[in-house]
């Protein structure tokens, strides 16, 4: 029973990545795309943690952590680039 609910949650997260991806394609400005990318990465972090528990490899949690770190730095770099160039 619990497994079915966990899998449903993962599928809903996957669907929300898809919706954010549509916004990333049609988004009229760069900032829209960056926001959509931010949301996609955070959903992906949740999915990575889900996969870590699902396949019983706890080492994947470290990957989720590094991915969170890189996405934060990436979004801040995009913001800084928009503000005054590289």
């Amino acid at each position: 029973m619990a497994n079915i609910i966990y899998n449903t949650a993962a599928i809903i997260t996957l669907v929300s990545i898809g919706i954010a991806f549509i916004r990333m394609i049609i988004g009229p400005t760069v900032a829209d795309r960056a926001v959509a990318l931010d949301v996609m990465t955070i959903n992906a972090i949740s999915l990575i943690v889900f996969i870590a528990y699902y396949s019983n490899r706890i080492i994947y949690l470290d990957i989720a952590m590094v991915y969170a770190l890189i996405s934060f730095v990436g979004v801040v770099a995009i913001a800084r680039y928009l503000e005054r160039g590289i």
Partner: peptide, 27 residues
């Protein structure tokens, strides 16, 4: 089961966030 239900609520919030990204009028 309790953990699974909390996870489901969390995924619904994630879906709402993506829907908000899609529907709102400006950045």
């Amino acid at each position: 089961l309790f953990g699974a239900i909390i996870t489901l609520i969390g995924s619904l919030f994630l879906l709402l966030g993506a829907l908000g990204i899609f529907r709102m009028p400006d950045v």
